[in-house]
Nucleic acid binder design. Structure first.
Lengths: 237, 237
DNA sequence: ATAATATGACTGACTAGTCAGTCATATTCA
DNA sequence: TGAATATGACTGACTAGTCAGTCATATTAT
């Protein structure tokens, strides 16, 4: 009983501009055509990205359960059904978003290995990157989201542990051991708990979300002070 | 679809169950006061507490939005309507829970001021209490819940900042300044960032919820290592 | 008795997920 | 070349629920 007859009026949904056939004839197979005239596949990818972006915003703002797919669709400028062309269901979408949001974050942090630097400079470099790229951006909210929803999405917590936490900590441990070997770090026990090195960064993430409006926190200065504890008073700057 | 309107006259629901109430009365009360026959006020308080406990479990397990009042009622052993005799609505209940769960926690931590102790012993005492009473208990999950839901419940975040964070940090700052004055703490900057002192404890809370099953974390040993950084290598124990 | 409490069936608002149908684009064929 | 045909991305009304909050009725306690 789909009273179909009435739907002739379908509001024409602002279809994106495209041009036609003359062009098609001249350039049949240009693969990576620049964004001037997106073809079907490119437009689809665009829309998927719009959905991903919109979903991220909504999930960050409301958490998993309270986020409405209608709102995601609206924000992305697509119909709700379109979401289901790209994602199996709400849960899959959430999991995939969190996963992909995390991956580039790791690469960024383990990327730059400057040669002639002290271990402290190395660590400080990591920290500055983290604070700049995570603490003061939307990515920080993603970290908070993982803390928030992790227990209800064990697969996310597991993935995050494998791909981010264990790798990140292993990297930190290596750096710490280097520092110990070079005599920059006095306390050899620190290598057993690389979490200590990270702790103030995580605190900063949480602080920004919850308490920044009550008392702004200078994450960089806090981290430097923390490094003073680990490496000794000497300050780089 | 919603063929509602017709049932003006609520169908008389064959009521049964009469004995159960008496049965319940006989099996109540073993816990605290040795009153064999609790009076009205006491029973009401009991039920309220049952609701509070049940709600806590459910909120911790599912978060605010995904928790069903039917489940709370079931777990508490009351009817759903009973909840509304004690709480205005779901949101009020959640807020009150978080609030009341936190208050005793602060008192506990600023309570015992032993006289002839070093500052390090003082801090270590705090930390052990925190780890015992929070990290390894349901209270830790409440802390996580605050981090998770805080942004969507500003009044909770505000309350928590006023009553817990600012007071806790002020207390820590005082202790740090004492340590500096006594020469136990070398880095005077630490007083500017008492968060650093707390950081590993918060890490431990989060770790227990998310990653303990992958890699158990010895929170106490981690904290001692952290104290070594602050107070110098010598270990108390 | 009768006021205070407790109950749970019920309502209405809200939402995840579906699917028949549309139409811009792509492909085929004369 | 361009008309005919095929494709599949996209839409949004719709279904099948779910659940917070209400209230008429029932059950104590005093």
């Amino acid at each position: 009983m789909k009273l179909a007859a009435k739907s002739k009026t379908r509001s024409p949904p602002a279809r994106r501009r495209v041009a036609s056939r003359a062009a098609r004839a001249s350039e049949t197979k240009v693969v990576s055509a620049p964004l001037s005239r997106p073809n079907r596949a490119e437009r689809a990818a665009e829309r998927r990205q719009a959905i991903v972006d919109a979903a991220m915003e909504e999930f960050i703002a409301r958490g998993f359960a309270a986020t409405r797919l209608d709102d995601i669709a609206k924000r992305a400028g697509v119909a709700k059904g379109t979401i289901y062309l790209h994602f199996k269901d709400k849960e899959s979408m959430f999991e995939e978003l969190i996963r992909t949001a995390i991956v580039p974050l790791v690469g960024r942090l383990q990327a730059p290995p400057p040669a002639g630097a002290t271990v402290r400079e190395l660590v400080e470099g990591f920290a500055l990157t983290f604070i700049r790229e995570v603490v003061n951006t939307r990515r920080g909210d993603i970290v908070r989201l993982i803390v928030a929803e992790g227990p209800r999405f064990p697969s996310i917590a597991d993935f995050y542990y494998r791909e981010v936490v264990s790798k990140g900590l292993a990297g930190m441990r290596a750096v710490i051991e280097l520092g110990i070997a070079r005599g920059e770090i006095a306390n050899a026990n620190l290598a057993r708990f690389p979490q200590i090195l990270i702790a103030p960064a995580l605190i900063a993430v949480i602080w920004q979300s919850l308490f920044a409006k009550h008392a702004p926190l200078d994450a960089i200065e806090m981290f430097r002070t923390h490094l003073d504890l680990i490496f000794g008073e000497r300050r780089t700057t």
